[in-house]
Simulated scan of single mutants.
Amino acid sequence: MRSAVWLPLFDELADPRVVAGLAVEAEAAGWDGFFVWDQIAWRTPVTAVGDPQVSLAAAAAVTSRLVLGPMVSPLARRRPTKVARETVALDRLSGGRLVLGVGVGSDSFAGEYSRTGEPVEDRTRAEMLDESLEILRSAWTGEAVHHHGTHHLVDGMTFSPTPVRGDTPVWVAAFPGNLRPLRRAARHDGFFPVNLTSPDQLAEAVTRVGALRTDPDRSYDVAIDLAPETDPAPWVAAGATWVLTDVDPTTLRLDAVRGMVRAGPSS
């Protein structure tokens, strides 16, 4: 099992200098990863929201070992060609430590889509996510990208440089009971099941994703979020390879986060 700090970039954590300092402390305390939320807005009482790409760049520049990335980025509201440039820049800045967490996202948390003119229909955002992932995978190869989709067009562009290791791991967020997201997760490098209620539910989801994978021998991660101080052992036995800290964004305080980070991961 590997452990990661997972932080909403809200209020006191909206400053990338603060995030970079926490990343340094996380690395010193023995954490394996450092992930951040990707939000444009959030509901009250949150008032300030930070940028994930800038915050991750700040964290990457001052660390040398931590795996890091957005968890998760709702690609339907982002241009995949811009994401291709950003991911490679972060990958190279970090020396190949980037993991890209992706998901369909939801308008229910803060009205991010409806208030900015983005599509709110789940099916449409899912289609855009799949097209974006296809474009990213092609772009990371350094070969010409030819994508003529329903939502995105990339006509013969090449993207250089490429990731340090030739690719970037992609972890897909999905509700365990929905088949289409599970199929999406099985096509990539990791699975981030959301709204889990028990280790048994996780074990069932891991089994379903495993049955959908075309190359079961390829390295694959299963990331879950648990409240700090929760015993991870039953979840690891159910198939989790990564455990992320689950903190309440509405009660987030820098001193408490710093204390959690300094205490190190649960054994």
Rank of each mutant, 00 (worst) to 15 (best):
R165M: 06
S3V: 00
A58G: 00
A211G: 13
D248R: 15
V54F: 04
F159Y: 13
G190Q: 03
F34K: 09
V120W: 03
L202W: 12
L9I: 07
L9W: 06
L22T: 02
L254G: 03
G177V: 05
I224K: 10
A185S: 12
P169L: 02
L212K: 06
D38H: 13
R183Q: 15
R17Y: 01
A29R: 07
T124V: 15
S266L: 06
L68T: 06
L254R: 15
A89T: 12
A4Q: 11
A26E: 09
R262I: 08
S94P: 08
R213Y: 11
R184A: 04
Q201G: 15
T241V: 12
R17F: 02
T230H: 14
P234A: 04
P161D: 11
A185C: 11
A28H: 07
V170P: 00
D15S: 02
E112G: 01
E12Q: 12
R183C: 08
I224N: 10
V261A: 05
D11K: 08
F34Q: 06
T162N: 06
R77M: 10
M157K: 10
M1C: 07
G21H: 06
R77W: 10
V5P: 09
L202V: 11
P119V: 07
I224F: 12
A174I: 13
P163F: 08
R65F: 01
A14T: 00
R253P: 01
A185L: 10
V243Q: 13
Q53S: 04
F109D: 13
T116A: 14
L22I: 01
E134A: 15
A84N: 06
R125D: 08
L244T: 08
W242F: 13
A14Q: 03
S108H: 10
P8D: 06
S108Y: 01
V261W: 04
F175R: 15
S3M: 14
G149A: 05
A173L: 05
R262Q: 11
R218N: 00
